[in-house]
Design a binder for these strands. Structure first.
Lengths: 190, 190
DNA sequence: CAACAAAGTTACCGTATGGCAACAAATCAC
DNA sequence: GTGATTTGTTGCCATACGGTAACTTTGTTG
């Protein structure tokens, strides 16, 4: 049944028959995480890539006594501790379920299998490309925009995030304190 | 002869015979760029990946009337307009030789060839991994450190950059104005 | 080498954002 | 549901950095 979710999520980007998605889904395992449960812990090595079916997740980096949010994930998206998954080494990255979440997880060895199929190759290449572009964009926004402009961008591009994720995480994601975010929000109610 | 340069550059990371590097080098073409010459222009599609043999290069993103420096490259490193090279689409990225430079360039099709060899696969995977980690680190530094701390980090980690690259590029790379960088430098002479 | 252009410095002032601290509001646990 | 934690708000003040603009230094080109 999960193949239909995958197919639907990528129908706009890839033409692939349901059988292809079935093959994909068969390499995955459906798992569930409670709110605030850790999906991947700091100091450990990533074993899986993930596709979020339901809920929301946050990626954080442990840095000098606090966690910085590097990414916020909603339904129908892939996510992973890229660094650790690619290198096979432990990382300082933590992944947490921000709501009760349903996830498809796929092991590193199955990812490698998939990458060898034409479809998987295209899919993962596109994934890498997306994440590279996103990181680049994020970096540039951080360097050129004010916190308020970044928040407005987020509201425009991913409005659901604003409604479903704690402000402390959004603030961290935007690179500011929760106080600053609170002031920005107040200011926007002008 | 370039195979020796490649072997030497990666001897600490990969055990590979000179024949393997020869095969690599044979897929490359040695090219030369004068100082300030554009290696890749904004709005065009990347055709090559690069390995810098001699000189220095800068990667910039065109953003609202000015160029932001996203990376500074010295000898013995790979670099590329990743986004465009991966996607096959034009990008807003420009690559410029900051000094007279000698470069090995390798076409996208040859990269794809190499990726299918065991050695090439490991090499490019390691490259992706490095660049992911670097981007992540850069982003976190931008969010958590002051401009002065970032400059000190750069001095510590890549001192040659400070000596060989214009301050305006370093400032841009650090996400500040050249005035601010000038003040920071003055301050450090305390 | 002279003349010009590019890069870097300094001063002045404005402003976005951080840190502390007290409080209010929302959520969680039993 | 009631108390206890967590999250978000607000005021006050400190500070890092940006923008403008004048100036100096360095580099380029004929």
């Amino acid at each position: 049944m999960n193949e239909h979710i995958l197919k639907k999520a990528f129908d706009n980007h890839f033409e692939a028959s349901i059988e292809v998605w079935k093959a994909f889904a068969d390499l995955c395992e459906e798992v569930h995480f409670k709110k605030n449960e850790k999906i991947k812990e700091v100091g450990k090595t990533a074993k899986y890539g993930y596709f979020l079916i339901k809920g929301s997740c946050g990626l954080f980096v442990w840095k000098e006594n606090n966690f910085i949010c590097t990414d916020l994930i909603l339904e129908n998206n892939f996510f992973a501790d890229d660094i650790s998954l690619l290198s096979g080494k432990p990382s300082q990255i933590e992944i947490v379920a921000l709501e009760n979440s349903t996830i498809l997880q796929i092991s590193k060895s199955n990812i490698d299998l998939l990458k060898k199929t034409p479809m998987g190759n295209i899919l993962f290449l596109a994934g890498e490309e997306n994440s590279t572009i996103e990181k680049q964009t994020q970096q540039i926004e951080m360097m050129t925009l004010t916190a308020e402009e970044r928040y407005l961008n987020l509201m425009k591009n991913r409005p659901e995030i604003i409604q479903r994720v704690h402000q402390k995480h959004i603030a961290s994601y935007l690179g500011i304190t929760t106080q600053s975010l609170s002031r920005i929000r107040k200011n926007l109610l002008k």
